[in-house]
Design a protein around this nucleic acid. Structure first.
Length: 294
DNA sequence: AAGTGCTGCAACCGCAGACGG
DNA sequence: CCCGTCTGCGGTTGCAGCACT
């Protein structure tokens, strides 16, 4: 099907939805019409150079104006994406380090698929990078572990996976990421989501609060060695190798009630200051603590 | 060597929220 | 407050390159 034909379908689609005001509908159709003549797909080095040069000279102001001014036949959106995910000078490329992987897994467990929030905690990594990493390396592995269907041995560079190792990995059960409740859901369910403990060794070590451990992780500065694949990582670090478990009451030697969670938060108030992600949720906890106190 | 399937990643799309007039 | 526009996010797709047959 030609792009023109596709466009016709899209125009019909825009009209049929009948969700937008007439000017907005016309704007969208006009935008799609314009997009027909814009270049799509992979960027070539010349385009990269133009975008880089333009931003270097003028900075980032209006993405929609930028392509025309920079002499690019691209949409503003495409330019923005290219810059954010590839051309930005502070972008770190290459394999994820062990610490980065740990951070991603922990934060994903806590926050769900909030890739931009997670990427904010990993300097130089884009949300797209993390999302791709999760979708290709981690999620598949989780799925494989959950299902009892055939499990494909993760690809390793320069080493073969022994059958024993393969069975070991298959036997480790990984929970799916818990849905992070928003404040309404939280209040309606009346329960606190469990903090996940992916790497029990880490959490049981220095600090007494799971949140402190996370904060500790956030401060990680050393990247000693990177891993070619997630599978390799799991081989080198067995506790990490998906012996993930939820933060059950037993982990703390006694049943953790909602109040106790709140108490923990009150005992470690700095935790939420350093770790601003999901702050709203924790603030709710603190507010509840206030109510309980009254 | 050719065909096929798989993987990883770049890019696209639609939507929602922010922002400004 | 409303409306139009812009920006950012997360899900999804498409494709290049590689491995395998």
């Amino acid at each position: 099907m030609t792009r023109a034909a596709v466009w016709c379908f899209k125009v019909e689609d825009v009209k049929s939805r009948n969700r937008f005001s007439r000017p907005e509908t016309m704007r969208r159709i006009s935008q799609q019409y314009q997009n027909l003549f814009l270049k799509r797909g992979t960027w070539d080095p010349d385009e990269d150079q133009k975008l880089r040069a333009y931003i270097k000279r003028h900075g980032i102001r209006n993405w929609n104006e930028m392509p025309k001014a920079a002499g690019l036949l691209r949409s503003g959106k495409s330019c923005r994406l290219r810059w954010m995910n590839y051309l930005r000078p502070d972008i770190k490329r290459g394999s994820f380090s062990k610490e980065e992987v740990q951070t991603i897994i922990k934060l994903q467990e806590m926050l769900g698929n909030r890739w931009s929030t997670i990427s904010a905690k990993l300097p130089g990594r884009t949300d797209n990078d993390i999302k791709n990493f999760w979708n290709t390396h981690v999620r598949n592995r989780f799925n494989n572990n959950i299902s009892n269907t055939t499990v494909q041995a993760p690809k390793l560079q320069g080493m073969q996976t022994s059958e024993e190792e393969f069975k070991q990995r298959k036997s480790s059960a990984i929970p799916t990421a818990p849905k992070v409740l928003n404040s309404e859901e939280y209040s309606s369910k009346g329960t606190l989501p469990m903090l996940p403990v992916l790497f029990s060794d880490n959490f049981s070590s220095s600090s007494s609060s799971p949140l402190n451990d996370i904060n500790e992780n956030m401060r990680m500065e050393e990247n000693d060695g990177s891993f070619e694949s997630f599978a390799e990582l799991s081989l080198l670090d067995q506790p990490l190798s998906m012996e993930a478990k939820k933060c059950n009451a037993e982990d703390y030697g006694e049943a953790y009630t909602d109040e106790m969670w709140v108490q923990e938060l009150l005992n470690y108030p700095n935790a939420s200051h350093n770790f601003d992600v999901g702050q709203e949720f924790w603030m709710n906890c603190l507010m509840q603590a206030q109510l309980l106190g009254n």
